[in-house]
Simulated scan of single mutants.
Amino acid sequence: MKFKITFFTFALALLTSLAAFAQQGGQFRALVFSKSTGFRHQMIPDGVYAIKQLAAAHVFSVYTTEDANHFTDENLAKYDVIILMSTTGTIFNDAQKAAFQKFVQSGKGVVGIHSATDTEYEWPWYNQMIGAYFLAHPRQQTLRLEVVDNTHPSTWHLPKNWLWTDELYEFRNVNPNIKVLINADETTYEPAKPMGANHPMAWYHEFDGGRVFYTALGHVEAVWKDPDFLKHLYGGIWYAAKGKTLK
């Protein structure tokens, strides 16, 4: 009986400590921003919910908003990483742009999901930061994704050949300095505007003092319950927040 009581007391203390750690921000603090002024993706609620679940599982804190007024120096200083959840269109005014740039320049991280590349077409800094602009996509199809770099936490768990079904983006104005993680094999599906052998679908890079991870995946609601995709996304979030890769 004494052992059971002692064990229960220890377990309760551990859970209390973990809860307190999470309330203090856990490993890091994430801001999920999902404002849309263009096309509105139906998967946004699924994505926000999934990231909240990731936060609970991996002990980090998350705040969600669609209010761009949250982008001030004072507010953004609270966070380690901004997650752009399928944003579209023009979503920031000049003051908010300046706060976002200062956030990145201070050494913080940004994660772009799916249509984060369909955002802020008149802002060159954003184009270079996120890595590319959306050009087109065909109908939803299955294809072979080729994992070309498994030294990044977003791809550690993935096979070289990853069979995937999604809305498959094609890009323009690709930043030549991005480090491609996953490439689309255009011979395995019917693209709308082919990019050829170099067709990135996920990438990362260091930019203007900060860290950026982007994945074009995530349009289909069902993928937000896919364990491999969620590990891919969390690896990108962890990298952007903490700067961890294999050297």
Rank of each mutant, 00 (worst) to 15 (best):
W123R: 04
A202H: 08
L18V: 15
P227Q: 05
T188S: 02
E170H: 01
T9P: 04
M85S: 13
S17L: 14
V32A: 13
D149V: 05
A98H: 12
T142D: 15
D94I: 04
P124G: 06
R29F: 00
A11S: 15
A22S: 13
Q140V: 12
K2F: 00
L158V: 05
P138F: 07
Q53N: 12
E122D: 15
W238F: 05
A184M: 11
G112A: 07
Q53F: 03
A132T: 09
F28S: 03
E167C: 04
S17V: 14
A197S: 09
G109V: 08
K244E: 03
V48P: 12
W164P: 10
F33R: 01
F100N: 06
K4D: 09
G218H: 14
A184E: 06
G38W: 00
A222F: 12
G210I: 10
L143P: 00
A20K: 06
A184C: 13
T215R: 09
T117I: 02
N69L: 07
Y133E: 12
M85W: 14
T117E: 05
G109Q: 09
M129P: 12
D208V: 02
G26K: 06
D73A: 12
I44Q: 11
V223D: 11
A30G: 06
S154R: 11
L76F: 11
Q128C: 05
L15M: 15
T188Y: 00
L15P: 12
Y204D: 12
N75R: 09
F71S: 02
I82C: 03
N93I: 05
G26T: 09
F21I: 04
P176S: 00
L181R: 06
F21A: 04
